[in-house]
Design a protein around this nucleic acid. Structure first.
Lengths: 116, 116
DNA sequence: GCTTGACATGCCGATATCGGTATGTATTAT
DNA sequence: ATAATACATACCGATATCGGCATGTCAAGC
């Protein structure tokens, strides 16, 4: 009989996966709050240019970076909001090791009440 | 000439990678704050038992779950603190889309001062 | 126009990864 | 001791993934 199913879950190129790679994380860290061209990333990370470009492509596809064309350069910046799913997912487990944020949430609620 | 280097970065089985897989996340979500045996996970997730066991192995290796032997069962529980690296990494970018937590951090510092 | 610069993309090889099936192992029950 | 339960592990096939190299593309300068 022939093989029909998928061999592995199609890595729905999602944010969790994109951040799973150390080089991709390094790229995001290097860009930080700045706007960097590919060449600057290549210099900073000491990686071959095609590799950086391909990682940037992945990050772009999941919305983690945005890109502007400036002359013949491509200027990349981090779109931090794309990390929100990760933040919220991790937050679901946070209380299992740290209740500080729950305290803070309560506090915030109180503050809002006081202000209103 | 012969090929010498590594073909890819050795997926240093780290927490980021472990959480990159959707099935693994589902396992963590299903366990949640409870203690579950493998069979219960198999039933809940409708996955083959070996697959669940192997994912649990990965989660164990990175410290995301702990395991106790209870009779002939293995009872798994989430060790949420292992998610801290992810939390902290994401937090570094949080200010790029949400400054609420910075406010809260400032507030916490003030509270501690008041208490001390 | 042609060249250069800055980057994206295509192709390839090696391997890590995931799912499936079969089998091993340890513990309880009889 | 034997059998059954609950799970881990081994092995395999298919493919996704990453790194390296070569080439394509597109804007700017001459």
């Amino acid at each position: 009989m022939y093989y029909l199913g998928m061999a592995r879950t199609p890595t729905t190129a999602d944010v969790f996966n994109a951040v799973g790679d150390a080089h991709r994380r390094a790229i995001l860290e290097t860009i930080g709050g700045r706007e960097l061209g590919v060449g600057e990333l290549v210099d900073a990370l000491a990686l071959p240019q095609p590799q950086v470009s391909k990682h940037l492509r992945v990050l772009r596809d999941v919305g983690l970076v945005h890109c502007d064309r400036v002359g013949r350069r491509r200027v990349y910046r981090v779109h931090g909001e794309a990390l929100r799913p990760i933040h919220e997912w991790v937050a679901r487990f946070e209380q299992l090791w740290n209740d500080r944020y729950d305290q803070l949430d309560d506090l915030l609620v109180e503050m809002q009440k006081g202000k209103g």
